[in-house]
Simulated scan of single mutants.
Amino acid sequence: MTDRTLYLVTCGAPLASRVEDGVRAARERGWNPYVLPTDAALPWLAEQDLVGVPVLVGNRAPGEPRRTPKADAVAVVPTTFNTLNAWANGTANTYPLTVLCAALGSRIPIAAVPFAKHDLAGHPAWTASLAVLRYMGVHIVDPHDGSTSSLEPLSSGTGECVAENLRWDWVLNLLNVA
């Protein structure tokens, strides 16, 4: 067992179907992963084998102790239009967004894989939010090829194919994994 904690935040898009693979890859690299899904991601997790992996849903109750150790790094795979914009704006109205906002403020290593089609990626809030997150040190990873210097929106109907071809090392290599 390791003492390095990785929060794996996942949003509701086809790439969420690969969380099980991400958990396995993280463990192979010595991370102790915790999955923090948005409500929209839950259906994508239903058929995955996440037995033995803490999947944290909802805020903790008043007086309830912390459910996780402090994160050493965060991977956001995928981050959708809604979550990415809320995160960059500092909107902390869900458990995953609260965690993301706190991680950004703490300046721990973060890698995010945006997943948005052309129409949403063409909205000015998307470009502004990406700029804010990059400014704060978030590694933005293109889901098509792992590039951190460019980001291509998804073409309609290609989400499953793009998700299938994602390599988790594109994300984990950015988090100072030994």
Rank of each mutant, 00 (worst) to 15 (best):
T2S: 14
L6Q: 06
L6K: 06
L6N: 03
C11S: 15
P14D: 10
P14I: 03
D21E: 12
D21A: 07
V23M: 10
R29I: 05
R29A: 07
R29N: 07
N32T: 13
V35K: 04
D39N: 12
A40R: 12
L45H: 08
Q48M: 06
D49R: 13
G52F: 12
G52S: 13
V53T: 15
V55R: 09
V55P: 12
V55T: 15
L56D: 06
V57F: 02
A61P: 02
E64K: 04
P65I: 04
R67M: 11
R67L: 13
P69T: 03
A71W: 01
A71R: 02
A75W: 05
A75D: 05
T80M: 03
T80D: 08
T83N: 09
L84N: 05
L84T: 06
W87G: 02
W87E: 03
N93D: 14
T94W: 03
T98H: 12
V99R: 13
C101A: 12
C101W: 00
A103W: 02
L104Q: 09
L104R: 11
G105V: 02
G105L: 10
G105M: 07
I108T: 00
I110H: 02
A111H: 02
V113M: 15
F115H: 09
A116F: 01
A116D: 07
H118F: 12
A121W: 08
A121M: 10
A121Q: 09
G122P: 05
H123Y: 06
L130R: 08
A131G: 13
L133A: 08
G137R: 10
G137N: 08
I140Y: 06
D142L: 03
G146T: 06
S147V: 06
S149T: 15
S149D: 15
L151T: 00
L154Q: 09
L154G: 09
S155H: 14
S156T: 14
R167C: 02
R167P: 00
D169P: 00
D169V: 02
V171W: 08
L174R: 14
N176Y: 10
